[in-house]
Design a protein around this nucleic acid. Sequence first.
RNA 1: CGGUAAUUGGCGCAGCUUGGUAGCGCACUUGGUUUGGGUCCAAGGGGUCGCAGGUUCAAAUCCUGCAUUACCGACCA
Length: 573
Amino acid sequence: MRSSDYLLATLKETPADAEAISHQLMLRAGLIRKLASGLYTWLPTGVRVLRKVETIVREELNRVGAIELLMPMVQPAELWQESGRFEQYGPELAKLNDRHDRTFVLGPTHEEVITDMVRNQISSYKQLPINFYQIQTKFRDEIRPRFGVMRAREFVMKDAYSFHLSEQCLDKTYWLMHQAYTRIFARIGLECRPVAADTGSIGGALSHEFHVLADTGEDAIAFSNESEFAANVEMAEAVAPQTPRPEASQPLQEVATPEAKTIEAVSQQLNIDPQQSVKTLIVHGIATDEQSQPLVALILRGDHSLNEIKAQKLDLVHSPLTFASEAEILAQTGSLPGSLGPVNLNMPIIVDRSACVLADFVCGANKDGYHFTGVNFDRDICNYQVEDIRNVVEGDLSPCGQGQIEIKRGIEVGHIFQLGQKYAKALNAGVLDESGKHEHLNMGCYGIGISRVVAAAIEQNHDKFGIKWPEAIAPFQVVLIPMNMHKSHRVTEVAETLYQQLLGIGVEVLFDDRKERPGVMFNDAELIGIPHAIIIGERNLDEQMVEYKHRITGDKAKLPVDEVLSFLQGKLS
RNA sequence: CGGUAAUUGGCGCAGCUUGGUAGCGCACUUGGUUUGGGUCCAAGGGGUCGCAGGUUCAAAUCCUGCAUUACCGACCA
């Protein structure tokens, strides 16, 4: 491709509304332009990268026997009403009416459509298992689109759906897809880790997220420093400390703690470690006949934080989790938040495992401006239930039993689920088994955010000059930078010849034939992140040489003109 | 949806406090100059100052409302 026939669209300055590095570089390198919030045009360079990611994904999915199809983005509302998600999915589901006033949705995902297709086309266990995928545009009306294409409303996704007679068969395909994903991200050249995940609203038995590790990632992931254990922080089990609870040695004592409303302030006033205190959070419970909005107390060690996902899974706790208002708390405890504690508290009490092993600790006295010291479970607090309700922190024991927890940040680029029979039952999709009995299908679904992979790759691979593409997804493999071509016949001749030769052997080459100064071309090539550069100038042509430079390693070499082709072939193979 | 901020040519910004001819840099066009890391000079094209209403002889500037956008919190590929 000649620059003069192309749209490079590089920018010197960073548009003001781009915050994330990948977003800034995607705009500056001419990959994308914003049309509206969360909606982006992919410029030619961006599309080249997108297509490369898609190709790798296709090859690896085909390799494990998945078959490609393509479903509509606009889907009839009836299907979504049938699965129950028309209401359940919430405002992220964009709805629209056609001229006949029939309601449709813009597909945020395709479980309904694929299950509908399968229930009509598949009727025998002999046709199973089967695994379909598509690469297609999705629309989710995100509350807050951010970071460019990282969280856009419209985005490109690869979604696959497998169907099975038995759970065992589903499990087998699930792990096959797990392997395929691992290979995909390795081939793309990303440092990526599978992570045990919450199945969330989609439901189902087993789920893994695939995360590209990057400091700017939105998700926190807990790793063991000694084993392969990795789990989303919201999902990682906080194991009970190994040490048993010490004996009570202090009497229960009420002390004045004026103005101390936070764990930090109380700890400072009483000169104790926050680890020797507990905090009390009041949330809404499940409504009963007697009480329309009962309250539940959650007790955590002072330095720990509540894991809302774990808490809302408990029987006593209302889901989704909501905190009690100050008025509700005052009415039931006689105290405002800041002086709450589990002693003589007239509501169900749930104690975190780590708080439960404390002895002689500090907590609020349910009386404004007062705390208790020397508090002990079983002596001072009797009716309570012990659960895991906190977020893991660095240094915790790993729940796998090996090593300690480390927390790193990641960008979720893939997610696989064992859905089980949820959609098959809702949409009544089944087959006849060997004995002629009707069985609901077991289903797995597997997503990769193709456009997000592009952003994540940049987030993980950039420097102050621009993008450092992994070779496998670079928009071009080679850039030809001829200097002062318009003034030198020799440069023109060598550049044109090399360009034709490279095209001839199928190399994706950008020939920067603009009448620009060398510095401009160097900067653009580095910004766009093309891995291999060949620089052609009068100076080296005196010796029939050109210069080679590698974008990532910075390696430089002088090459005889007639060896460029074989040199590059060696580098690219 | 809550909190914060912004909106002036394609991009980055100044001007607003104290109302009076809309400006700078980049990019673009033309001519010249320069040529191994974002040359320099000159001439030029391009703006309903987000929208609506109000105050005023006069509004980018003051007032009111609305819209859009970004960032921080709860969801997700």
